[in-house]
Design a protein around this nucleic acid. Structure first.
Lengths: 336, 336
DNA sequence: GTTGCCGATGAAATCGATTTCAATATAAAA
DNA sequence: TTTTATATTGAAATCGATTTCATCGGCAAC
């Protein structure tokens, strides 16, 4: 069936396209009688307004772009779900862009804003520099950030207090009797990771313990990276009884390394991760982790961003810090 | 910075919009000199062609819609990744729609095709009936299916031979010495599940074993459902030594139930799932499963669908059956 | 019976690009 | 030098809907 245009409906109903448009958009300036005629015609022709025409005229695509580094990692999937749901309730659609962890691709994707393919863009833990992002926001493009924080009046950000996470984990490990604990960073460019490291340092400082650079290593947030990083540290200075990994993936790598090296968890080595992904509850022992309300972060940011697109000014703070909670499980119980 | 239009570029370069358009689209009918002028003007104005204008005129959105039941489940995420990558290489973007497992929502989403928001729609294990889908395809709308099979000249489908999967798993279990094996179905509407059940029956029949209805139960593909289903069967007729779950999630539910009931895997009970999701390698014992090349399924279908949109006719069969492989792990070793 | 006003409708401009077709300019041929 | 063919360019139509502005009609007020 060929799809019909507004003019077809107009002709069938013996009115002008303008009137049809008014009916479609619920304008009150239409007689009940003509409205009925028009609706009848719409029904008979099985007419659906063409989105492109509508968008061009209204200069709104009702679409949000979402840039993630990899759709498959559950951290991102959960955020996307939150974004998608909120966007949908507010009448928006979402365009997913997987940057494949390439910064170059992220830069490219900003063009979606320039060419007005989307009304706004949500970047999830982006690799772009603060300058690149702010310069875009300054150009009146609508951008929102998840898992990263930039102080800018027009950039809403939704993130967790990573420093607090760092401190809290350290406190937990201290309480469990550990004095020397390693820290595995993630991407060098990830503020998440950097801030968690700072929190780790603060925690140690508060307890009057020294910060030992040899207990720090980093990787790219992947299981393999965690595995390698742990092995490096272990080979360097065997002197530690706990590991705090910047995310669960890396913590899983630690599990693997420990299994290989015959190090038992948690007796000989306590392990704590961040994100509390599903797998943490399937490994033995269950992995202690910090749960971030990812779904809520996605949803909250989306709501704010759409508000901004619609022009709601000053509806609240641009920085939305969301509280995360430490979930203690078998991998970091008392004693050790 | 206000974004500029093609007319602005035209004025700045002292040419007509038509010429600018030609330069933009690499038409060969432009003098090198004017081309230079135009490019110069484009650069100076930092001009980017507006996507909506372009789309309206060309009647192409260069966007594909993807409907999944839940973005978070890794089965879907993997498929989406394949779709996204292929779409991207071919210049397409993807609009993600999470149907929240509601059929009603799926129906709604078909409107994306009607109003031309997308050029084509990919449905991943959809809940819509064959009739609903084919009637849409008959209306010249471009639809593709993943994980489901409909015989229709205009509907490309990418799926695995579920019946074969069923037979193969049964054969494997028979070889390991099992004679009575339970089967846990998934969604009642999922052809995947139904076909696997048929394969299971065929496998039994080939071995001359009877099909026992009391060893069949079903759930909704979730871990909880698997847990409940197993408990029901167990309570009914304790007489079986292996379970074949229609997917890994349900198999994980079986693990949970067995742990509670003190049934050891694989000694007392062998377990096999389907999908070979990541968690299967983190549980103890590792879960035997059937690996489906999800990424490839997504990518292959997308390529075909875009070909169809572009008008490549008859470039191959509409039905793409992709071979899956049984991965035997600890949960179904010999003996039992 | 005019005049004035208001509510319903339509004609036409608009959004921003592409593309057809006609009109140039340029080069080649006579 | 004039004619013809060809290579560039521009004017205007187009995609499909929305929206402004003008118009028409009816009704009330004078």
């Amino acid at each position: 069936m060929k799809d019909s245009k507004i003019i077809d409906v107009a002709q069938k109903a013996k009115v002008s396209p303008a009137t049809v448009s008014r009916v479609l958009n619920g304008s009150s300036l239409v007689t009940e009688k003509t409205q009925k005629k028009v609706l009848q015609a719409i029904q008979e022709l099985n007419y659906t307004p063409n989105a492109m025409g509508k968008q061009l005229r209204s200069r709104r695509t009702m679409t949000l772009g979402v840039v993630v580094r990899d759709i498959r990692v559950s951290y991102n999937a959960e955020i996307i779900k939150g974004i998608e749901n909120m966007a949908n309730t507010l009448g928006y659609k979402i365009l997913i862009c997987d940057s494949q962890n390439e910064k170059e691709k992220e830069v490219e994707l900003l063009s979606l804003l320039q060419n007005r393919t989307v009304d706004g863009l949500i970047l999830v833990t982006p690799q772009l520099s603060d300058e690149e992002i702010t310069s875009f926001a300054d150009d009146e493009y609508t951008i929102g950030l998840i898992g990263r924080r930039i102080e800018h009046p027009d950039i809403p950000c939704s993130f967790t207090d990573n420093r607090r996470i760092g401190r809290e984990v350290v406190e937990h490990l201290l309480e469990a009797g550990h004095r020397r604990m390693a820290f595995l960073c993630g991407f060098a460019d990830a503020t998440d990771s950097i801030e968690r490291l700072e929190g780790y340092k603060e925690g140690l400082a508060e307890a009057g313990l020294p910060f030992l650079p040899e207990l720090i290593d980093n990787g790219n947030f992947s299981e393999d990276a965690g595995y390698e990083a742990f092995k490096r540290i272990w080979a360097g200075s065997g002197e530690f009884t706990a590991v705090f990994a910047a995310n669960d993936e890396m913590a899983l790598g630690v599990y693997k390394a420990c299994a290989e090296l015959g190090i038992s968890i948690p007796e000989r080595m306590a392990v704590v991760g961040v994100d509390n992904i599903r797998i943490t509850n399937y490994v033995e022992p269950k992995l202690s982790s910090v749960e971030q309300p990812l779904y809520e972060m996605g949803a909250a940011l989306t709501e704010k961003l759409i508000g901004q697109i619609k022009g709601d000014e000053g509806t609240g703070p641009q920085l939305m810090q969301i509280r995360s909670t430490l979930v203690i499980k078998g991998s970091s119980g008392k004693g050790g």
